[in-house]
């Protein structure tokens, strides 16, 4: 066995051991955790529910895949999902707009997508023209959006005796088919964009060989700006998918919902490919459903994030060690 084989085997084994250890540490215990996971995979209704949860995650991951390919390491998807959700909530519950159900989803996607894109654009412009680190700027924006959301929820949008907003009306609620169609559509558009357009070629070049891209007169700054727009677009749309399917209303938040962050993990799990994000994103949302089921056994929801990150890290380490020389 050579070094690469040994290292990749070791990283797989330690990843699996890590997962077992985590399951053992949860209040549900080893058996409780794995039986819940088994339950999710054996029941068709839970598998269908997973589709709903996959909406915001896959949508974020699709845009992030594009951004990461260009070397634009944003983590703004979280704030963009939240802002997109706020936009869709405003459109469906507060704007007083009365249109048919079939028109509302595209309209909400458009508005939420634009909101997310504008948010992404801030980090993009800052990076492209002022060299401001996009990872940090997008993170700061996440917290600013969170504060803004909490302000709306506790202030102008508050309804009823509790700190919560109105709900998306039943008329405008979307189902798993709507979610599936939307993410499929987005994934294939973005895959096409990457593989078959000039912009896609420039993005690949920029990520793989920034210096060469610069030498061959690829307009680096404008590519970064386009990428930031396209990235925020899908994450914002993910926000609409979230609020119109399973979330429906908002309550005061201590931390962000986290679907945008999961999108980051999904994007890397999918080896930064838009179509790959469909599979990785669906897999991760089955874990979310398992996480919600486990909550009744006293397991904190963020354990899902832990399991997901161990899986991604194992995968990344496995891929990296296969490249080991010698």
């Amino acid at each position: 066995m050579n070094r690469a084989q040994r290292n990749s085997l070791l990283s797989l084994i330690s990843g699996i051991l890590g997962l077992i250890l985590i399951a053992y540490m949860t209040p549900a215990g080893l058996r409780g955790t794995f039986s819940t996971l088994g339950l999710v995979y054996s029941r068709i209704d839970l598998l269908e529910t997973s589709l709903l949860y996959s909406g915001p995650i896959i949508a974020s991951a699709i845009g992030l895949a594009l951004a990461y390919r260009a070397g634009f390491i944003t983590i703004g998807s979280e704030g963009q999902v939240l802002l997109g959700a706020l936009t869709a909530l405003w459109l469906t519950a507060y704007s007083g707009l009365h249109i048919s159900r079939s028109l509302m989803l595209p309209l909400a996607l458009l508005f939420s997508g634009l909101a997310g894109a504008l948010l992404g654009l801030i980090s993009g412009i800052l990076r492209a023209y002022w060299d401001v680190n996009e990872t940090l700027s997008s993170l700061m924006l996440n917290y600013i959006v969170l504060a803004f959301a909490n302000y709306l929820i506790a202030g102008p949008w508050r309804t009823g005796p509790f700190t919560q907003t109105r709900s998306v009306p039943n008329l405008y609620a979307i189902n798993k088919i709507d979610v599936l169609i939307t993410v499929l559509f987005l994934a294939f558009i973005y895959e096409f964009l990457l593989r078959r357009t000039k912009l896609g070629l420039a993005i690949e070049a920029l990520g793989k060989a920034p210096k060469a891209a610069y030498t061959y007169a690829i307009p680096v700054s404008s590519i970064i700006v386009y990428v930031s727009l396209l990235q925020g677009l899908t994450a914002g749309m993910g926000g609409a998918l979230m609020i119109m399917s399973f979330q429906r209303n908002m309550t005061a938040m201590n931390q962000s919902p986290g679907y945008g962050y999961m999108g980051i993990l999904v994007a890397w799990m999918a080896l930064i490919s838009p179509v790959g994000s469909l599979i990785a994103g669906y897999f991760f949302s089955t874990l979310i459903v398992a996480g919600y089921l486990l909550q009744s056994k006293g397991v904190p929801f963020n354990t899902v994030l832990l399991l997901q990150s161990v899986i991604v890290l194992t995968f990344i380490a496995y891929m990296a060690s296969r490249r080991t020389k010698g």
């Binding site: 540490m25 963020n302 899902v304 994030l305 832990l306």
Partner: peptide
């Protein structure tokens, strides 16, 4: 994300 999840556990 690993740290945030672990911290909860």
């Amino acid at each position: 994300f690993m740290g945030i999840g672990l911290s909860e556990l």
